[in-house]
C-alpha cells in the first residue's frame, strides 16, 4: 500500500483479512484496509464486485443475510466487532449506514431524525439539540426546519436521502457508511448530498460506495478499487485516477467496463 499521510495515527476502522463466502463461491477475498480519522474513502468497482457486501461486513449487517460466512477481523478503535462478547446492535449504533434508496419511516421529519436517539432512550433536550445539529450537518435544516412535524414521506427523494444521513448522524457516529447514496437522485440532489459529504469528511470517517468514478473524484481523498471480490488497488484519489498502477483499475476508470 502507498505511504499515505496520517499512516502513523491509529485507524478508526481497520479491516484485517476479511473474507465473505457463500457455500459455493467467494464474494470477498481477504480484504485488508485501514480507515483513519477525518477521511473520505470511495469504494469503487464494477457491478457485483462486492462493494455492498464489503461495507455491510463493517457494521455487521452482512450476517443478517442467510448463507454468508464471514471471516477475518474488523477493528473499531482497536476492538474486533466480531468478538463474541460484542453485541452487533451496538456496532450498528456506532457506525451509521445510509442505503441506496431513501429509507425514511412513515413518521414526522423530526421523529425520523430522532430514531437512533430514541433507541438509546436519550433525553428530550438531548434529542432536540442533536436533531437540529444533525439536520444542519446533513444540509437539510433550511428546507425542513419550519415543518419538522410534517410527514417525512412527503419530502422529495433527495430530501429524504439527506434525512437518512441526518438520522445516521444524530447519534454522532465516528464512522458513516454510505451505499451508492445518490444513485436514485437527480443531479441537483446529488450535488447537495456530495456537498454534505465533503463537509462530513472534515469531522468523521466516511466510507462511500459508488459506481460513479466522477463522484469519487469530486468528493473522496482516497479510492479503493474492488474487482470480483479482490481489493485490486487503493491510493490517494488523484494518483489513482491519473496514474493507476493496475491494468484493471485503468480499464475501470476509463470506462471500458460495465
Amino acid at each position: 500500500m502507498t505511504a499515505e499521510s496520517g499512516a502513523m495515527t491509529t485507524p478508526v476502522v481497520a479491516v484485517d483479512g476479511v473474507s465473505v463466502r457463500t457455500r459455493d463461491r467467494t464474494i470477498l477475498d481477504k480484504i485488508s484496509l485501514d480507515f483513519s480519522a477525518r477521511s473520505l474513502t470511495a469504494v469503487v468497482g464494477p457491478s457485483g464486485c462486492g462493494k455492498t457486501t464489503f461495507i455491510r461486513t463493517l457494521n455487521r449487517m452482512a450476517e443478517l443475510t442467510p448463507g454468508l460466512r464471514i471471516q477475518g477481523r474488523v477493528l473499531y478503535l482497536g476492538q474486533d466487532v466480531y468478538d463474541p462478547t460484542v453485541n452487533p446492535v451496538v456496532v450498528r449504533r456506532r457506525m451509521g449506514m445510509v442505503f441506496q434508496r431513501p429509507t425514511v419511516f412513515p413518521a414526522s421529519v423530526f421523529e425520523n431524525a430522532a430514531f437512533g436517539l430514541r433507541l438509546v432512550r436519550a433525553s428530550e433536550e438531548e434529542i432536540d439539540a442533536a436533531v437540529t445539529e444533525a439536520l444542519q450537518r446533513a444540509g437539510l435544516w433550511d428546507e425542513v426546519h419550519s415543518h419538522l412535524d410534517g410527514p417525512a414521506l412527503a419530502l422529495s427523494g433527495g430530501q429524504q436521502q439527506r434525512l437518512c444521513i441526518a438520522r445516521a448522524l444524530a447519534v454522532r457516529p465516528k464512522v458513516l457508511l454510505l451505499d451508492e447514496p445518490t444513485s436514485a437522485l437527480d443531479p441537483a440532489a446529488t450535488q447537495r448530498v456530495e456537498a454534505t459529504l465533503q463537509h462530513l469528511k472534515e469531522e468523521i470517517v466516511v466510507i462511500l460506495v459508488t459506481h460513479n468514478v466522477g463522484q469519487a473524484a469530486r468528493v473522496s481523498d482516497r479510492v479503493a478499487f474492488l474487482h470480483s471480490g479482490h481489493l485490486v488497488e487503493v491510493g490517494a484519489t488523484a494518483d489513482m485516477l491519473e496514474r493507476p498502477r493496475e491494468k484493471l483499475t485503468e480499464q475501470f476508470i476509463t470506462g471500458r467496463f460495465e
Binding site: N59, M61, V89, R92, R101, T103, F105, F115, V120, V171
Partner: peptide
C-alpha cells in the same frame, strides 16, 4: 428496506 434501515440504525 424499512427493516434494513431500522436494524442498520441499531434497533434490537
Amino acid at each position: 428496506h424499512i427493516r434494513e434501515a431500522a436494524v442498520g440504525s441499531g434497533a434490537t
